[in-house]
Amino acid sequence: MVEIENLYKHYGKFVALDHLDLSIEKGELFGFVGPNGAGKTTTMRIISGLLKADGGQAHIAGIDALKDSQSLKRKIGYMPDFFGVYDNLKAIEYMEFYASIYGITGKKSKDLCLELMDLVNLSDKAEFYVDSLSRGMKQRLCLARSLVHNPELLILDEPASGLDPRARFEMKGILRNLHDMGKTIVISSHILSELAEMCTTIGIIDKGRIVTKGSVEDIMRKLNTTNPLKIHVIENIESAVRVLKENPQVESLSIDGTDITVSLEGSEEEEAELLAELVKNGIKVVSYVRETGNLEEVFMMVTAKKEVLD
């Protein structure tokens, strides 16, 4: 659905996108994560036809996003991080205005708009003036607006920013529904835990480059290999320590009663081999688990690593 290659954008001396490569499959709910100024919004604006790239290629649903912005706009629905609404327009009129842009008018337009407003739980607000709605309702209305031409790809820049927990929860539910309906969704957010719960794939961007990408589980697994291994044994702790020290993968260990914390940087297979070695030596292992981090920790780790490398 989205194929970005070597995308480059700079503002004066500041490089916003540094030959960024990104691929998003059809039907994915893709979470775009990165610190401020990492290039999330720039990428989203380029693939929405709002900003010209300085180099590279971007194809959306087979359309060259950098050359054919008119065709591109039929395929995408975009929701910016900050947006305003028209005063003196009712919610249904707001929707009908955008429907009319795509040539949908009359009863067809009204039915479609009511259907979309129902999808975002706003059907009871159709006759309310837009400026009288709460921020959360406006966000949902804007989301419904972006669906008016049935786009294949939804690009949502920080859709949950500034929302209270309840409104965020509602937005999350709506996005899940849309994903279940088969929409491809690209969403950026700073609330990483929410992205982790919701997204099928996460891409971490830093300094204009994708640092890592994959399913949340994959990324966590990949990065958790550096986390300490917690082993709880019954008796025979000396033998356990001996076996662990003999293993070349073990870098250090500490003992707290019958709990051993091991620093082992290796694959899952090597982890399993170490467990087998312990069991083979007659050590009764009660628990053997890698400490898991959350997405925030992973994000901090990945971006910090990048900084060290730079």
């Binding site: 709002l50 706009k73 975009y78 028209y86 842009i101 795509y102």
Partner: peptide, 9 residues
């Protein structure tokens, strides 16, 4: 409101 308008056809 202009940005949204510019992402339409």
């Amino acid at each position: 409101t202009l940005e949204i308008l510019l992402t339409t056809v």
